[in-house]
Design a protein around this nucleic acid. Structure first.
Lengths: 108, 108
DNA sequence: CCAACGCGTCGGGAAACGTTGACGCGTCGG
DNA sequence: CCGACGCGTCAACGTTTCCCGACGCGTTGG
């Protein structure tokens, strides 16, 4: 994992650890040791997963003293949503619940 | 790629060839040689990508004489959509267009 | 019945990936 | 100023992925 990663969003999401990292960052920026505490993984391993996410532009790092806080940067996920969208056509039944959820977000 | 690993959906989507295969199958079932014609790839390579998609339950095969037609089976993509959904919260601006599209589907 | 076709699968080699221990650099506290 | 902390990165190794050529099996057409 040392070389130059392909910065592909889909590949970045292929790993469950990286997906959980993004899930955690939804609640706000967090430092590396804090994030690493959630996994049975060495800290370098988490660091390199974060590097993959950084190259995919899914996270941004902000140095704070001797720690580095990582922020979620969800924009590239639009590519996934756009690719996924034509398939929504196929499970129309579940679309209503999604629309209701979106309506709830827009008209609270 | 010879074993029988129960591939998860996210890993199946990590490869661009497999994503294009799913895109092609959106327009209807197709045979392997037909699909392989789209790529600069050997037919066995395409066959093995289809095997990955089959293990992820994203496609189904239907034998027709000496050909095998592959059908799209988009249900597992729901897992991707469900994982993605909490992040929609972050690009609210683009949510309106999605909602409008869903409204259009539901009230044609 | 036999040759050609369509396809899955195996063998194997190259490349990519994931993990760990070791090292280095900047930062903070005493 | 010095040791501890927080973190990135490298070297190395095992595992997985990706691709191809070769083979085998069932189907079809002559």
């Amino acid at each position: 994992m040392v070389g130059v990663p392909p910065t592909d969003v889909f590949s970045a999401l292929a790993n469950p650890v990286r997906r959980k990292l993004l899930d955690s960052l939804r609640e706000g920026p967090r430092a590396v040791n804090d994030l690493a505490g959630q996994f049975e993984l060495s800290r370098p391993a988490v660091s390199e997963h974060l590097q993959v996410l950084r190259h995919a532009r899914l996270v941004r790092e902000e140095p704070r003293g001797r720690q580095r806080y990582y922020h979620l940067e969800p924009d590239p996920l639009v590519e996934v949503r756009d690719w996924l969208h034509p398939f929504e056509h196929y499970w129309r039944e579940r679309m209503r619940s999604l629309r209701d959820l979106l309506d709830e977000e827009n008209n609270p």
